[in-house]
Design a protein around this nucleic acid. Structure first.
Length: 511
RNA sequence: GGUUCCGUCGUCUAGUGGUCUAGGACGUCUGGUUCUCAUCCAGAAAAUCGCGGGUUCGACUCCCGCCGGAAUCACCA
């Protein structure tokens, strides 16, 4: 049974660089029987608290389908799940350490500590607080836990020694005694530091795997020392390498403009594609599979196959995967399912909106003029256009001419590489022939339209590129459109003829 | 500066001593489909496996050194 957690601090949104530390623990928890995925909010630094951040985090997880079994908004037997509400638990553990002679109250003012730090820097020796440990830390009363009261910082009393440990991703690691130090356990405000709080919480919540970024690796010796002093077993450690920014060689960070995961939702990226791409950034199952459902990821994910080097974020590949997923959903679930996504009416969108109604997350990806048409018509449009979408927001650019008459632009028409070979007279005559033929059509089905277009080809003795481009542009004035017979079928006879006539008149006027 | 981690096509990666004249995917380029764009299909270019030693009959794979990049050294997480 695996128990994992995602434990963000409410200081802002979840960006692409840190969402893997939610995805991987989720996958690990879902493997095997009775696993639990816990969501814990690490809000011990009140100065960095950002209003609304928790809601945004919840919404992101909900959207991606990383539902937690236990934690914030859900409860569970190991709560509370906000660290700020667990003060008494930390204090109890802290007193245990004091009684064991492994923690001491430290009244040294910050200014004093700063002096030590600068002095060591001047001497070019590494700053270690244990070299400046106050004498009171070693007095005989040190194991008396009443000697410390909240209001004074509590420090760990470290014992320099080398440590070896195993990391599930990085392998066997070891460091020398020079990194062990007297770290702060409880701050002046009575709240614990991350360094102490997560150890207590993970133990109390029976967490089996700690999944977090490699930046914590350098603190491991101190953590290990605390586990030992507390006399508790430590969970398995899974250190995730960084996600690098597209440019440069830096880890992706908010400072450098890393985007929020949820922003991609608003830009028309499917949750499946997001999960798929992110899970496979720095992990693969050894096969050549590229597209994975959430269920496949749960089934195939292996900690041992997580890459130990950093991976660069590549938005182009994310968009390719999104295109794959758009087609996959249409092909497997049909137009209704895909349509629901385009109006944010699918389960994931509704749930994430419910999680965070404050944010305007109910996005309609259609052009504004689509509102004049009913759902059935929109679905027809979607059915012939879906396979060229990279994101749902492409609908805005690709489909307007299905909802409003395009502005006639003869320059655009005549710039076309096939049309420019025809004189305006030829263009006019061709359009006349097309209009005449189509006027008499009673069967406007796509299949029949294809036949009619073929007839026109032989009748006019034109190349498809010439005839079809002319019709296509007259109908859409767009850089591209779906196959002609499908476009005409969806537009309907009246509008098709009206647009052909309009362009023909414009050409006649121009002559 | 101390400590630690990482290093295969532009990018994500396969590769656990011989099957690697290094495989796949994205991207790029070329060609194919009764139009365009996209899809799809076929093909191409693209990695002296960071560098130098060693071990071995044989190294991308094991060892050592170096170089390069990154992370971390808070009463932040």
């Amino acid at each position: 049974m695996n128990v994992t957690r995602f434990a963000p601090s409410p200081t802002g949104y979840i960006h692409l660089g840190n969402v893997r530390s939610a995805i991987y623990p989720y996958l690990i928890a879902k493997q095997g029987k009775d696993g639990r995925f816990i969501l814990r909010i690490e809000d011990t630094d009140q100065s960095r608290y950002v209003e609304g951040a928790t809601d945004l985090i919840l919404e992101t997880l909900t959207w991606l389908g990383l539902d937690w079994n236990e934690g914030v908004k859900k409860g569970g037997e190991h709560g509370p799940y906000y660290q700020s509400e667990r003060r008494d638990i930390y204090h109890a553990y802290a007193r245990k350490l004091i009684r064991a002679g492994r923690a001491y109250a430290d009244p040294t003012p910050p200014a004093e500590i700063d002096k030590y730090r600068k002095a060591d820097a001047a001497k070019k020796i590494p700053f270690l607080y244990r070299n400046h440990r106050p004498a009171s830390a070693d007095t005989p009363t040190t194991t008396d836990d009443t000697a410390w009261q909240p209001g004074i910082p509590l420090r760990f009393k470290s014992e320099p020694k080398s440590v070896k440990w195993h990391d599930e991703v990085m392998g066997d690691l070891e460091t020398g005694p020079e990194v062990m130090d007297d770290i702060i356990l409880i701050k002046k405000d009575g709240l614990p530091t991350y360094n102490f709080a997560h150890i207590v919480d993970d133990y109390e919540m029976r967490v089996t795997h700690i999944v977090r970024g490699v930046e914590y690796l350098s603190s491991m010796p101190n953590y290990l020392a605390i586990y030992e002093a507390l006399g508790i077993e430590h969970p398995k450690f899974v250190s995730l390498p960084h996600v690098l920014a597209t440019q440069g060689n830096k880890k992706l960070s908010k400072r450098d403009g890393a985007k929020s995961v949820i922003d991609y939702k608003d830009e028309g990226v499917l949750k499946e594609a997001m999960l798929n791409y992110l899970a496979c950034l720095g992990w693969n199952d050894g096969t050549e599979q590229e597209i994975y459902t959430k269920e496949e990821l749960i089934e195939k994910f292996q900690i041992s196959r997580i890459q130990s080097s950093g991976a660069r974020f590549d938005e182009v590949k994310l968009l390719w995967q999104n295109g794959q997923w758009i087609r996959k959903i249409f092909d497997e679930n049909g137009v209704d399912e895909l349509y629901d996504r385009t109006v944010s009416r699918d389960e994931a969108s509704l749930k994430s909106h419910e999680m965070n109604p404050e944010r305007d997350s109910l996005i309609n990806f259609w052009p504004a003029s689509a509102a004049d048409y009913d759902e059935t018509y929109q679905k027809q449009v979607l059915s012939i256009i879906y396979d060229r979408l990279k994101t749902l927001s492409d609908l805005k650019n690709y489909t307007t001419y299905f909802f409003e008459d395009p502005r006639i632009d003869l320059a655009f028409l005549q710039n076309n590489k096939f049309i420019k070979k025809l004189s305006e007279t030829e263009q006019r005559d061709l359009l006349s022939a097309v209009i005449e033929k189509l006027q008499d059509e009673t069967d406007w089905s796509a299949a029949h339209l294809q036949d009619t277009l073929n007839d026109l080809l032989t009748q006019t003795n034109r190349k498809p590129a010439e005839l079809f481009s002319l019709i296509r542009i007259a109908l859409s004035y767009a850089d591209f459109s779906p196959a002609l017979h499908l476009t005409m079928n969806v537009l309907g006879k009246d509008r098709t003829l009206a647009r052909l006539n309009a362009t023909r008149s414009a050409i006649v006027n121009d002559l």
